[in-house]
C-alpha cells in the first residue's frame, strides 16, 4: 500500500498523529525508567521529577485526542487510515494509564523509608520493570513499523511479567509473616509490582491493537495470563506458597 495520499496534507496529518503516539510512548517509557531508578537508588529527587512529569503525558494525550478527532471530522478516513486513527486513540489511553502507574510507583518510593530490608525483592521489582520497559519499546517499534509479528511476540512476553509478580507476591507475603514491621514496606512494594504488572497488560493491549491496525483482524487466540496472585494463599504453619 502506498504511504502517500493524493491530498498530501492528509498524509501530513497522519504522520503527525503517529509522531504524537511515539512521543507519548517515549515519555511514558522514560517515566517508568526514572521511577524504577528512583526506587533502586532511593533517589527522592528523581521520584519527585516523575510525579511532576506525569502532567506532560496527560497533556500529550489531550493533544493526540484533538489531532485524531480533527482527522475523523475533516478527512473521513477509511480502511487502514481509519484503523490507524481509532487505534492511536486507544493507545493514547493505555499510555496515559501507564503514566499514572509510573507516577504511583514514584509516589510510593517517597513513602518507603528504607527499602534495604527488601533488597532481594527490590531487585526482582527492578527486573520486572526493565522487562516491561523493553516490551514497551518493542511494542512502540511494532506500532511505528506496522509489524504485526513483532506485536504478537510482545503480547506473548507479558506472561513473564505475570510470573515475576507471582514470585514477588510469595516473597513479600513471607516477609510480612516473618516480621510485622515489614508489612508497610512490603505492601508498598506489592502495589508497585502490581502497577508494573498492569503496565505489562496495557502493553499487551497496545500490541493487540497494533495487530488489528495492521491486519484488520483482531487476534483470535486468547493471551495466556499467568498472574495467579488472586488465588495465592500462604500458610503460616509451613510458610509455603500454594497456588
Amino acid at each position: 500500500m502506498s504511504d502517500q495520499h493524493i491530498v498530501s496534507s492528509f498524509t501530513e496529518d497522519m504522520n503527525e498523529l503517529d509522531s504524537l503516539v511515539l512521543q507519548m510512548g517515549g515519555l511514558v517509557e522514560q517515566q517508568l525508567k526514572d521511577a524504577t531508578i528512583a526506587l533502586k537508588k532511593e533517589d527522592r529527587e528523581l521520584a519527585k521529577k516523575v510525579l511532576k512529569g506525569d502532567a506532560a503525558v496527560n497533556e500529550l494525550e489531550a493533544t493526540l485526542n484533538d489531532a485524531a478527532i480533527r482527522i475523523l471530522a475533516l478527512r473521513q478516513p477509511v480502511a487502514m487510515d481509519l484503523r490507524n486513527v481509532v487505534v492511536s486513540l486507544k493507545i493514547a489511553r493505555h499510555l496515559e494509564r501507564m503514566g499514572d502507574y509510573s507516577k504511583n510507583i514514584g509516589r510510593r518510593t517517597n513513602t518507603i523509608a528504607k527499602a534495604e530490608a527488601f533488597t532481594g525483592s527490590v531487585g526482582t521489582l527492578v527486573r520486572m520493570s526493565e522487562k516491561v520497559q523493553s516490551m514497551l519499546k518493542s511494542g512502540l517499534d511494532a506500532y511505528s513499523q506496522r509489524d504485526a509479528e513483532k506485536a504478537e511476540s510482545v503480547r506473548a512476553e507479558d506472561q513473564q511479567v505475570d510470573q515475576m509478580l507471582n514470585t514477588l507476591f510469595r516473597e513479600l507475603l513471607t516477609y510480612m509473616m516473618e516480621d510485622a514491621r515489614n508489612i508497610s514496606g512490603a505492601m508498598h512494594l506489592l502495589f508497585m509490582a502490581k502497577n508494573i504488572e498492569r503496565i505489562g497488560d496495557h502493553i499487551a493491549d497496545i500490541a493487540k491493537e497494533t495487530i488489528y491496525m495492521v491486519t484488520g483482524e483482531w487476534p483470535q487466540e486468547r493471551r495466556n495470563k499467568e498472574d495467579k496472585t488472586s488465588k495465592m494463599i500462604v500458610d503460616i504453619a509451613d510458610n509455603e506458597a500454594i497456588d
Binding site: 500500500m1 502517500q4 495520499h5 477509511v78 480502511a79 487502514m80
Partner: peptide, 12 residues
C-alpha cells in the same frame, strides 16, 4: 491493495 488505495485517497 487497489481498493485500499482508491477508497483511502492514496496514490495507487
Amino acid at each position: 491493495e487497489l481498493t485500499q488505495n482508491y477508497i483511502s485517497g492514496r496514490i495507487g
